[in-house]
Simulated assay, not measured.
Amino acid sequence: MNILWDFDGTLFDTYPAYSKIFSQVLEGKVDEKEIYKRLKVSFSHAIDYYKLTKSQIDEIGILESKLTPNDVKPFEKVEEILKFANKNVIMTHKDRHGVLSILKHYGWDKYFSDMVTIDDGFPRKPNSLSYQYLHEKHKIDLAIGDREIDLIPAKELGISTCIFQNKSKFADYEISDYSDLTKLIKSAM
Rank of each mutant, 00 (worst) to 15 (best):
F112K: 01
I3V: 14
P16A: 13
V78R: 08
F122V: 05
P69L: 04
G158V: 10
K94W: 08
K20R: 15
E156Q: 15
K125S: 04
K37L: 04
N70D: 11
E64H: 08
T10Y: 03
R147Q: 13
D31Y: 04
L82D: 03
S42I: 11
I47F: 09
M115I: 03
I62F: 01
T53E: 15
K87Y: 13
R38M: 00
D146G: 15
G61E: 05
L103N: 00
K186H: 07
H135L: 09
K94Q: 10
N166T: 00
V25S: 09
V89T: 06
R147T: 12
S168M: 05
K29H: 06
H105W: 03
A85T: 04
K167E: 04
F12V: 02
L134G: 14
K87S: 03
Q56Y: 01
R124T: 09
I144K: 12
S23M: 09
I140T: 09
E174R: 14
I90A: 07
T161E: 13
L39D: 01
Q56S: 09
T117K: 10
L39Y: 07
E156N: 13
L157R: 15
N86M: 10
D141L: 08
D141W: 03
D141R: 07
I175E: 00
S23W: 03
R124H: 11
I118Q: 06
E76N: 14
I163K: 11
E156L: 14
I140A: 05
N88Q: 12
N86L: 06
Y15H: 00
S187Y: 03
T92E: 02
E59R: 14
I163N: 15
H135P: 06
S179P: 07
S42N: 12
F22S: 06
S55R: 14
E174W: 08
I57C: 07
V99Q: 10
A17W: 06
R38K: 01
K40W: 01
M91S: 10
Q56T: 03
F112L: 00
K83N: 12
H93Q: 14
R147W: 08
A154F: 15
V72E: 08
N86I: 12
